[in-house]
Design a protein around this nucleic acid. Structure first.
Length: 272
DNA sequence: TAAAATGTTGGGTA
DNA sequence: ATACCCAACATTTT
């Protein structure tokens, strides 16, 4: 479900209740949710570790864990929510939900519950987050992601823009909503070829990507269903989920086509 | 009922 | 190596 802005919002909201808490137990209800090292390993290794910091890399949540003696090597718990993953901090007295997959029991009486209807989400316990995130492209909102850097990356590609934006090895964190929104902002058609863009269009795409993601974060992400309730960006979509509705620039109806097994929404009149 | 859903990966083809 | 298609993962909602 969530893309970069939603995960960023989730991370910001989890810091207050979780940082400083100690994990005292782990319960796994759907073993395949534990990607690595194994169910046995996480249930044995996590208890006793304290949550030192929570960061985001692309769509991954990265929990930095440490024990009391700070000389011990740090462990990292990574969580990818995929399509329907949710993280709830609740009292341990709360009844277990049908879709709770992994529960982290914390000191202080509360629990972090990884709830995931479709079971696509995964947790990883690793010594180095790069083991999981090493293949990802640059963070689009980082300082290193300059226009000059973007020009270098896109110069190596030739495919259609929509799948390219969804390619996490090209840029990390963009999903179906923000890809469509970025292309509308850039006035570029989702089927345009990366190697057909002139300098002005590359710059427009760079700005569109950053603007869409920043706008999403500012509005706490997008909430389309029960999975992620706290956002407001869904009320500001320009194209996503607006098939047939008027383009906010030219009033022509928004089109929906399928590209690479995913829906793409765009304005055929002002995206060329 | 069929289709679609904010995601990723692996296999096969060209 | 890159591009692109399909299937798989699994469940709920429209």
């Amino acid at each position: 479900m969530p893309e970069l802005p939603e995960v960023e919002t989730i991370v910001r909201n989890l810091r207050e209740p979780l940082i400083g808490r100690r994990i005292i137990g782990v319960y796994v209800y759907w073993p395949r949710t534990v990607a690595r090292p194994s169910v046995d390993a996480i249930t044995q290794r996590l208890p006793g570790l304290r949550i030192r910091a929570i960061q985001r890399r692309a769509k991954y949540l990265v929990f930095e864990l440490g024990s009391r003696s700070s000389r011990q090597p740090t462990d990292y718990l990574l969580i990818h929510l995929k399509m329907s993953g949710r993280l709830d901090v609740v009292s341990r007295k709360r009844s277990i939900d049908k879709h709770d997959r992994v529960i982290f029991d914390l000191d202080g009486g509360r629990q972090l519950r990884f709830n995931d209807t479709r079971k696509f989400g995964r947790v990883y316990l690793v010594a180095d987050p790069e083991e999981v995130t090493g293949h990802l492209g640059p963070e689009p909102l980082s300082e290193e992601f300059t226009l000059a850097a973007f020009k270098r990356f896109i110069a190596k590609r030739s495919g259609r823009l929509k799948p390219l934006l969804l390619d996490q090895a090209f840029i990390a964190g963009i999903g179906n909503i923000y890809a469509d929104e970025a292309l509308w902002l850039a006035r570029l058609h989702p089927l345009r070829r990366a190697d057909s863009l002139n300098d002005t269009e590359v710059r427009a795409l760079y700005r569109g990507i950053r603007a869409a993601l920043k706008d999403g974060i500012q509005r706490n992400g997008a909430s389309i269903d029960w999975v992620y309730p706290e956002g407001d960006y869904q009320n500001h979509f320009r194209v996503y989920d607006r098939t047939g509705e008027p383009c906010r620039r030219c009033k022509q109806p928004i089109q929906r086509i399928v590209i690479g097994q995913r829906s793409a929404h765009f304005c055929a009149h002002c995206q060329l």
